[in-house]
Design a protein around this nucleic acid. Sequence first.
DNA 1: CGCGCGGTTGACAATGATCAAAAAAGGTGG
DNA 2: CCACCTTTTTTGATCATTGTCAACCGCGCG
Lengths: 252, 252
Amino acid sequence: MMPTITAPAPFQELLRLLGSDAPRPGAPESDPSVPLWRLRAGAPMTHEGMPADFIQVVRSGSFKCQRVAEDGYEQVLSFAGPGDVLGFDGLCRGHYPTSAVALEDSTVFALPLRELDRLRQQHPALDRGLQQALSRQLARAGEVAEMMAAVAAEVRLARFLVWLSGCMAARGQSPRRLHLRMSRRDIASLLGVAHETVSRSFTALAELGLLRVDNRDVEILDLDGLRQCTRSTRGFLDSAGRAPARPERLAA
Amino acid sequence: MMPTITAPAPFQELLRLLGSDAPRPGAPESDPSVPLWRLRAGAPMTHEGMPADFIQVVRSGSFKCQRVAEDGYEQVLSFAGPGDVLGFDGLCRGHYPTSAVALEDSTVFALPLRELDRLRQQHPALDRGLQQALSRQLARAGEVAEMMAAVAAEVRLARFLVWLSGCMAARGQSPRRLHLRMSRRDIASLLGVAHETVSRSFTALAELGLLRVDNRDVEILDLDGLRQCTRSTRGFLDSAGRAPARPERLAA
DNA sequence: CGCGCGGTTGACAATGATCAAAAAAGGTGG
DNA sequence: CCACCTTTTTTGATCATTGTCAACCGCGCG
């Protein structure tokens, strides 16, 4: 593979990343050596259609997973951050169905598929952690579907931002200050709208006083209000909760 | 849980369902007993928010997975058939994030989460099969995203039908004769469009000579043509392949 | 310095959501 | 078996959200 291989990294850290909080009693001496890959921003980690030899666990940085159509259109399927498992979808067919591209300088633990079964058998904590992580991935897939399913573009973007905010919170960081690692085009692709529409939706949410947007820096001013937007399944008006009030486009 | 519990079913069948084709040498005497659930059409198997005690492997029939918004809107996230694993997304948080509803009379193998780790350790074939199935589920999530991402409604429906056709083929059944177990509304929800639009898209594809539609019976007349539609990421016109020609709406 | 890329904004056409209504299918009870 | 109801599906008409084309700006990089 392309990525630079560096010295093995602490097995403990891998377990912690996977959420297998249980501090195992086992001897740390028996920890296996897991290759650590370092990727530069923009570098492809896995390539669609290539034989799947590894699964990767993101240690730092972030990735976008995508499939590119024959006409060159890049369909972004998900974004991944620390603790997320990548490449597992390649296990069933033997080759990766999606590409993963680093959005910033990143590091991943690379688990060779050949040794995966053995590793899991010998290290139950790793096995449990992996199952947990896979469960999370599956649950996330549903969340992605929910983002894309919303009718109004502003709602899709709001759901995306709330989701990102949740990721930040889960990682112990501020859920209000978001630093987007991906382009508008990538967001647009994930949400299934034109990139111009994403841009417009950002300004729309900002004009509602929910956000402050400075290029890829987004500050969430009203997280609850944003969650309100999130809820509207049909139009923008919310039948259930209090109406967040139509944007009143162009209202000064 | 609600479902009727019947006598345990052959462990072998479960393994075969999961695609663990490898005929294991082990003694069939040691096969564990796995509960088999029987569900009537329309019966909910798992309910959103309920504690996750089991994962289920569909043996026969089909299901829809959905989340219902507080305003009552049902967002369908995926459809599942024989060999698919349900409920695994509940493992990470301890409760099901989605509901699964039987679309017809169905049966599932129910694996208690409490015993899952032990079962997997004692039966490597089961473990491998489960990982395979989970990998498939993950890959499928990407496919669902691709369906929803298409701009034109006809393209979304075409992708859905091609996907269904693939499911049929993978099961050794005719890839041309589809018997839809789900309502137009369910399809619409999955694809992220209004159910009226699904109806219109069906007639549009039929008028293109690609389908023959009789209520929930769909016959694919031109699978290659349908795949052509599938490819168009932007509008309907295909830049790459030969243009499938705009529907020429209303052209007699 | 010029170029390309990412982002924003405007204008316009159109796809599809919504409202409305009717036809068709399925289920229930007499 | 039929009447009656509900649900599902289809079709029509209207309007607006959004895709598309286009221009512009700011920034980083060669």
